[in-house]
């Protein structure tokens, strides 16, 4: 299986085609609905996400002595309304989520963003790939805050490559 390590560039992501399985290591940012909404309302972004990967996820609290709680992907389609603007505003190069995206988002991602899916409903298994987890933005949102994660060999599947090709159910 192909191993990828952050930081990555669009050039590194270009060979990835729909259906390819990869193991991702390095820094990613977890954020979901409420953080998307707030970020789009900000004049100045509270985080520099250029060249970064965002992961649609809101974890359970970590038990004492554990790095992370359960942390599988949430439904990407709920972010569809925000995604084209988020891509423009942040300069992210990849998104990790769960499930199909709308036509407008698929078009907005083409050439700019690789869309991966992570194993849905397998939050305990994915927690084993988290080396570090830190709340970095909007702490008052609790599970919907932005988390900076260090991951090691996070298993992902390419849903849509930079070529814009790829359908998932």
């Amino acid at each position: 299986m192909l191993k990828l390590k952050m930081p990555l560039t669009l050039k590194d992501l270009r060979p990835l085609k729909h259906g390819a399985e990869v193991l991702l290591s390095g820094t990613i940012y977890a954020m979901r609905d409420a953080a998307h909404k707030r970020m789009l309302a900000e004049k100045k972004l509270p985080l520099d996400l250029r060249g970064q990967i965002i992961y649609y996820m809101g974890p359970t609290p970590a038990r004492p002595g554990k790095v992370s709680g359960s942390c599988g992907p949430t439904t990407s389609a709920r972010m569809d309304k925000y995604t084209p603007q988020i891509i423009e505003k942040t300069g992210i190069i990849s998104i990790i989520g769960k499930g199909a995206r709308g036509a407008e988002v698929k078009a907005a991602m083409k050439g700019k963003v690789v869309y991966f899916i992570a194993y849905s409903g397998l939050g305990a298994l994915i927690a084993k790939c988290i080396r570090k987890s830190e709340m970095v933005c909007y702490p008052y949102l609790g599970a919907e805050a932005v988390y900076k994660l260090e991951v090691e060999n996070l298993p992902l599947i390419v849903a849509q490559g930079l070529d814009g090709k790829g359908e998932i159910k």
């Binding site: 996820m57 809101g58 359970t60 709680g69 359960s70 599988g72 305990a124 927690a127």
Partner: peptide, 8 residues
């Protein structure tokens, strides 16, 4: 390990 089956 007492990690919830799913984060939700």
């Amino acid at each position: 390990e007492m990690i919830p089956l799913c984060q939700d």
